[in-house]
Design a protein around this nucleic acid. Structure first.
Length: 532
RNA sequence: GGCGGCAUAGCCAAGAGGCUAAGGCGACGGUCUGCAAAACCGUUAUCCCCGGUUCGAGUCCGGGUGCCGCCUCCA
């Protein structure tokens, strides 16, 4: 054992219910399996968060020196896909491919790394059938009329992840679910489903059919990461039954102690305090939101809260007539209690605002403005010749940031560690009074270099500042229908008035611009405008 | 009903028993500015309630209250 010791990272493991130090199976390496999408529709923010959690984890582990193998599956054979394909009048495989493409488009947009391997169910029928076969051989599964079910009672540790007992579950299941007479027990779940006429089917020892929902993850994780691997991630709602069943399948086939060694589950996203759902009309696709805000803003926003916590997404809709902010009930009915106007829900939906995203957007703009200023400063002079002290907050930034990340990927804390350095740099750029010239230069250099590492870990703050800020302005202008040419004109006219010290005219023009929602900032090198 | 989680300032949100409870937004005061804005500086909490463990608890234990999730497809 001569490997260099990698830094200690702790993560919360759902199975043990505690934070545990990451000790990979093979020192220095780490296998990560993320439960990917079932591709039957466009993604929503919950999907985005579920992909973001392993994304940042993988980026950070790599930054810390781990050799990571990142696997995320695509479930492209599933009941929901079949149902949706019928609606859209496509072949199931075609529909799955369409939405897999859309998934990738959204995830690319949000800056997610592509996994090293992205196995699809349709490409893994053999290992899936083999796994089912071995469970049948061990009496852990039984065939019935072309279906194959897992015999839950035969797997002793069942319930260990979700912390329930079989008896408790039986009480619930018996009263709530219609029991399929072919099952020995209501808790037994399908490993293989016989095909009904017209459904996609693959040959198997039990007849033509398709895999059940849970088996693919057991089969594909062991195919690409081995029977035992390090980290398994997914949304909280997958703990039961999906992940519980995966454990039963994998450990049933491969023995105790196999399969995932750490379980990481992310919290939910709520809209206005309620779980998002289509029936409530509070369901927004990723795309609807990235049409309004920069995808990086969305990414950043998701990182402001620890991944295990729930994240509430505030919605704000105003009455188009009187501009009053509408309460929940009013939003749903479209009727404004203030002025009595009734607005089509569709119209309200189109002009909903997301205060949380706006705050994140402003914050991102602040970061990029600071980076832009720092870059301009560095372009002006020669690099610092000799090493030497760097201002306090900037000097400690990266260490503090990483310490938070090592503590269960605490992005919220890590982000907080950037605030003081950011302010320090802006202060330095403003005046630099009382600071040695060399130290000033070194501090800004250090800041820019370390911030680039932060950017690599988070997948945020890495764009070219000027480009990002320009795009943001364009996006906002388009959203409010602002005529930017006219704004430029007014700004120029005002600048002329200022130069001739005609402040009355300048102030009048400022007021006019303010009426358009535009704020003008006067600086030494002229005036620039932003949104108020 | 069963199981699990959460409750920290006006709002959002960190905080694996012990320096003066991070940070952001907002607000207020200040520096700068023709006026502003931006930027910077400063102010803005004893952690839901009751009991307990401990030299010491936001952090552990018990009870209560209130939210939320899972138990059926769900990220």
């Amino acid at each position: 054992m001569t490997e260099t010791r990698l830094p200690e990272i702790v993560l919360f493991d759902t199975l043990s219910g505690t934070k545990r130090t990451l000790e990979p199976l093979v020192p220095g390496r780490c296998g990560v399996y993320c439960c990917g999408p079932t591709v039957y529709g466009l993604t929503h923010l919950g999907n985005a968060r579920a992909a973001l959690v392993p994304d940042v984890m993988v980026r950070f582990l790599r930054h810390q020196g781990y050799d990571v193998r990142y696997v995320r599956n695509v479930t492209d054979i599933d009941d929901k896909i079949i149902a949706r394909a019928a609606e859209e009048q496509l072949a199931p495989a075609e529909l799955a491919r369409k939405y897999a493409d859309e998934y990738h488009r959204d995830m690319d947009d949000l800056g997610m790394l592509r996994p090293d391997v992205e196995p699809a169910v349709s490409g893994h029928l053999e290992p899936i059938i083999a796994l089912i076969g071995s469970l049948v051989a061990k009496q852990l599964a039984y065939a019935a009329d072309g279906d194959v079910y897992y015999r839950v009672r035969a797997f002793g540790p069942y319930g260990q992840l979700s912390k329930r007992s079989l008896d408790e579950m039986l009480e619930g299941a018996g009263s709530r679910i219609e029991v399929d007479p072919r099952k020995e027990s209501p808790l037994d779940f399908a490993l293989w489903k016989a095909a009904k006429p017209g459904e996609p089917a693959w040959d198997s020892p039990w007849g033509p059919g398709r895999p059940g929902w849970h088996i693919e993850c057991s089969a594909m994780s062991s195919a690409h990461l081995g029977e035992t691997f390090d980290i398994h991630t997914g949304g909280r709602d997958l703990i039961f039954p999906h992940h519980e069943n995966e454990i039963a399948q994998s450990q049933g086939a491969h023995g105790p102690g196999t399969f995932a060694r750490y379980w990481v589950h992310n919290g939910f996203i709520n809209f206005d305090g309620e779980k998002m759902s289509k029936s409530l009309g509070n369901f927004f696709t990723t795309r609807e939101i990235t049409a309004l805000y920069d995808p990086e803003t969305v990414r950043c926003f998701l990182l402001t809260v620890h991944y295990r916590s729930g994240l509430n997404f505030e919605l704000e809709a105003a009455c188009p007539r009187c501009d009053r902010v509408l309460a929940r009930a009013e939003q749903e009915s479209g009727a404004c209690a203030g002025c009595g106007a009734v607005t089509e829900p569709e119209l309200l939906r189109a002009q909903v605002r997301f205060p949380g995203l706006e705050e994140a957007d402003d914050r991102l703009a602040y970061v990029y403005t600071t980076l832009q200023r720092a870059g301009a400063f560095l372009d002006q002079g020669a690099p610092a010749a000799e090493p030497g002290p760097v201002l306090e907050h900037t000097a400690g930034m990266l260490v503090a940031f990483i310490a938070h990340m090592r503590n269960d990927f605490n992005t919220s804390g890590a982000l907080g560690a950037l605030s003081k350095p950011l302010a320090e740099i802006n202060g330095l750029l403003d005046s630099g009074k009382g600071v040695d010239k060399g130290a000033r230069r070194r501090t800004v250099e250090r800041f820019v270099a370390d911030f680039a590492e932060v950017a690599r870990i988070l997948g945020c703050f890495g764009a070219d500042p000027g480009t990002w800020l320009a795009r943001r302005r364009d996006l906002k202008a388009a959203r409010v229908g602002l005529d930017t040419a006219k704004v430029e004109e007014l700004v120029a006219a005002r600048q002329a008035a200022r130069l001739s010290r005609d402040f009355a005219t300048a102030d009048r023009l400022r007021a006019e611009l303010a009426g358009l929602g535009v704020a003008v900032q006067d600086g030494p090198s002229g005036s620039v405008w932003t949104f108020a």
